[in-house]
């Protein structure tokens, strides 16, 4: 009996309700939703914290979800889904797992597709008549997709080596 006997096999239902939706879309679930459906759902489930215009309501902790494009190199960068997030799949993943904050994990896949479509529409990323499903979500190109350094770097001049004095 070595390591192969440790733990037990995962049963067919064990992972039900556990998922993560990485960029590429291969893992995204079935289902779909439109901007129009998303608008209604957003109004019911999200607006009291994130604002009717997605402008954020600081007193609730609900972040601003749109705007801020072009601000990232300024003195006052505004980071939102629209201005900062590199991948649309992340929006689906996060809303599905953690929102609405006052009833987490309560949305169906269809509802999350719809709400994601609405947020991306209000961010100027999808047209008013858009619908999202697994394939369409994976195609979305986010405005700041190229806004990240390719990898971590060492700034040897400043960070390494003993100081002079």
């Amino acid at each position: 009996e070595g390591a192969e006997s440790w733990g037990s096999p995962i049963g067919p239902d064990d992972l039900k309700g556990m998922a993560a939706y990485a960029p590429g879309g291969g893992d995204l679930p079935a289902g779909s939703g439109t901007v129009a459906q998303g608008r209604d759902l957003y109004g019911e489930r999200c607006a009291h914290c994130h604002g009717e215009e997605l402008e954020g309501i600081p007193e609730t902790g609900g972040a601003k979800l749109v705007g801020g494009r072009g601000s990232l190199a300024s003195d006052k960068p505004v980071k939102t889904v629209e201005s900062y997030w590199p991948h649309a799949e992340t929006l689906f993943d996060y809303v599905k797992r953690a929102m609405p904050f006052d009833d987490p994990g309560s949305l169906t896949d269809d509802e999350v597709y719809a709400i994601s479509a609405f947020i991306l529409n209000r961010g100027g990323i999808l047209p008013e008549d858009a619908a999202l499903d697994a394939g369409a979500l994976a195609q979305v190109k986010m405005p700041n997709a190229d806004g990240f350094y390719p990898g971590d770097t060492y700034d040897l001049r400043l960070s390494w080596g003993r100081a002079d004095n």
Binding site: P77, P86, Y94, G147
Partner: peptide, 29 residues
């Protein structure tokens, strides 16, 4: 969940990424 690529979760993109003054950000610091 074991994979061959990062999942780019909200925490590691929207949140725990480091914005430089050129407007670009570092991931996975």
């Amino acid at each position: 969940q074991v994979s061959d690529k990062p999942f780019m979760t909200r925490e590691e993109t929207s949140k725990y990424s480091d914005l430089y003054s050129d407007g670009r950000a570092k991931l996975f610091t």
